[in-house]
């Protein structure tokens, strides 16, 4: 995969990039690690799952994630929304990951902070994922172009609804995460060709009992 970078949008959000420079990645990793360590020490509200790239595994992940959120006092609506986010990201990981090597798997991490829930899905990719990564980048930037994800969602369902019946491509997963899951999406690919897609949800007042 050829390296490519995008300039910061200037709106305070981290922009997606197909491949980050080492310095940027180290900085992101450091920030991410610091967050994880802090959350682990303060609350131990983290979960990590390693998932075989089999479609049937996704239901197990959904159930485990739901149990995890419920055990931390999340009400049903928030559990449903966050589980949907996880489910869509794992589906993408399995669809577009490189699982030629038997040890290659999808990894899910969930971190519950005081105001944020961070979901990250990691999976190996190879050169065949290039188109997917470009589409991922384009879609995330496109979603960010809308102040209200509802508008992005309705625009996308309008467009998808007009495609032929035989066209099975949905293209709705990411925009659904932004709209229904109220999450900010991002991604990067490391030098080790591991794709990390993250979704950060801001907890509402009534999201925790």
């Amino acid at each position: 995969m050829s390296p490519s970078r995008k300039k910061d949008s200037g709106n305070g959000r981290r922009r997606s990039s197909i491949k980050d420079s080492k310095n940027d990645r180290d900085r992101k990793n450091a920030a991410s690690d610091a967050f994880i360590v802090r959350e682990n020490r303060a609350t131990k509200r983290s979960m990590k799952l390693t998932v075989k790239p089999n479609w049937e595994e996704i239901e197990e992940v959904r159930n485990s994630s739901s149990d995890f959120f419920r055990s931390h006092g999340f009400p049903g609506d928030a559990v449903n929304a966050l589980t949907m986010v996880i489910s869509e990201l794992i589906e993408n990981g399995i669809k577009y990951g490189n699982f030629k090597a038997p040890e290659n798997k999808v990894t899910l991490t969930i971190h519950i902070g005081s105001r944020l829930v961070t979901v990250e899905v990691f999976n190996p990719v190879d050169e065949t994922a290039h188109d997917h990564l470009k589409r991922l980048d384009r879609t995330i930037q496109w979603i960010r172009g809308y102040q209200d994800p509802f508008q992005a969602y309705t625009e996308r369902i309008r467009a998808v609804s007009k495609r032929p019946l035989r066209d099975k491509e949905s293209g709705l997963g990411l925009v659904r995460i932004a709209y229904e899951g109220k999450s900010i999406l991002d991604f990067f690919v490391g030098d080790d060709n591991i794709l990390n897609v993250s979704a950060v949800s801001i907890l509402e007042e009534d999201s925790r009992r």
């Binding site: 959904r62 449903n80 589980t83 949907m84 489910s87 869509e88 589906e91 369902i157 998808v160 609804s161 007009k162 495609r163 019946l165 099975k168 491509e169 949905s170 709705l172 997963g173 659904r176």
Partner: peptide, 16 residues
Amino acid sequence: AYMNSSTITPIIKTLE
């Protein structure tokens, strides 16, 4: 109880 985003596609195509 749940549907993935790929399920939305045939529904909205039917409605359109």
